[in-house]
């Protein structure tokens, strides 16, 4: 499901000002088109992670920057690993 900025704010409970900060930090990078921002489920889940890190785990903004950067790298590595696995399966050794 794709949401507009307003729908995203309503469903996630994130304050408009907070969202501005997150966008500025590039913690969230929604797609943009002529009609404005478009938030995917992927963005919404990421917003939930940021909220968990902040509210539940007590991580401050500096810390969140680090955590997201590492999480993004981790997923990059996991993806590369998955692709390698697929390649190895295809190729006779």
């Amino acid at each position: 499901m794709i949401m507009t900025r307003q729908e995203f704010l309503t469903s996630s409970g994130v304050e408009a000002q907070t969202l501005e900060f997150w966008l500025e930090q590039e913690w969230l990078i929604p797609e943009r088109n002529a009609g404005g921002m478009r938030f995917s489920e992927h963005d919404v889940a990421r917003a939930r992670l940021i909220r968990d890190l902040k509210a539940d785990l007590g991580i401050n903004d500096e810390g969140i920057d680090v955590v997201l950067h590492l999480v993004d790298q981790l997923h990059g590595v996991r993806r590369a690993l998955a692709q390698l696995r697929a390649e190895l399966r295809r190729e006779p050794t």
């Binding site: 990078i29 995917s40 489920e41 992927h42 889940a45 990421r46 939930r48 992670l49 997201l68 999480v71 993004d72 997923h75 990059g76 996991r78 993806r79």
Partner: peptide, 15 residues
């Protein structure tokens, strides 16, 4: 969770 999305598709634009 976020991991369910980051693992699907190609992970853009974050991964």
């Amino acid at each position: 969770f976020y991991r369910d999305f980051a693992g699907a598709d190609d992970g853009r634009p974050y991964t």
